[in-house]
Amino acid sequence: MLKIDNLKVSLEEEEKQIIKGLSLTINSGEVHAIMGPNGSGKSTLSSVLAGKAGYTVDSGKVNFDETDLFETEVEERAALGIFMAFQYPIEIPGVGNMNFLRTALNSQRKTRGQEELNAADFLKLVREIAKDLEISDEMMRRPVNVGASGGEKKRNEILQMCLLEPRFVILDETDSGLDVDAMKLVSKGVNKFSSSSRSFLVITHYQRLLNYIVPDFVHIMVDGKIVKTGDKNLALHVEETGYKDFL
């Protein structure tokens, strides 16, 4: 599904390479976890996959199915089924959450040549998802993320994921800031959502999350590269000894 081939990425503003030759293949139905010290480039990798501006691709390729990602606009990537749950979700004052969600969903459907969802069907769908994630009506009526707590914002990201039904999901530290109950709730949401045709890239600092969302592969990322790949036991090892073995 996703094939990253020897990717090197620098910041556009300064001459600083962040991703320094990273390769990773993720097949349909797989769950991959990435762990790594602060500043190793995990969020940069997610941002580049989602299409954020401000980076220069020095070399390497990323293919999503047959599509060359770097030839694809941000909104087209979303319509292809790529979704990144932000480490720090943005607040957008003045843009109503419901209006945003409905516009996003229908824009994607339009891009894919599907019919738009009418207001009633949309409302029903969104309410169901919000209920599962215990997101209140009041929260849904607010402008996007405005006044939401850290944990509420993270739940909102998962709501968007469930609504937009992407095929490839990046969870960038979705567990940070969540209390124990919320983490179970979010994991339940993710597990309910996962299927043999969907793949996940889960970025986390805590092995705990991986008890709920069980990875097929765990990668350790240090200084812009994957330095070790293993199964879920690698996460347990990191939890105990830290990253000193990999530096």
């Binding site: 989602a50 299409g51 954020k52 501006a53 606009e73 941000v74 909104e75 990537r77 979303a78 319509a79 979704f83 990144m84 932000f86 979700p89 943005i90 957008i92 843009v95 945003f100 516009t103 996003a104 969903l105 824009s107 994607q108 339009k110 891009t111 996007v144 968007q160 937009l164």
Partner: peptide, 14 residues
């Protein structure tokens, strides 16, 4: 730019 990226990343057209 960040708000714009957030909207685009959810599939909203430019």
């Amino acid at each position: 730019r960040d708000s714009l990226f957030y909207l685009l990343s959810r599939g909203v057209h430019k």
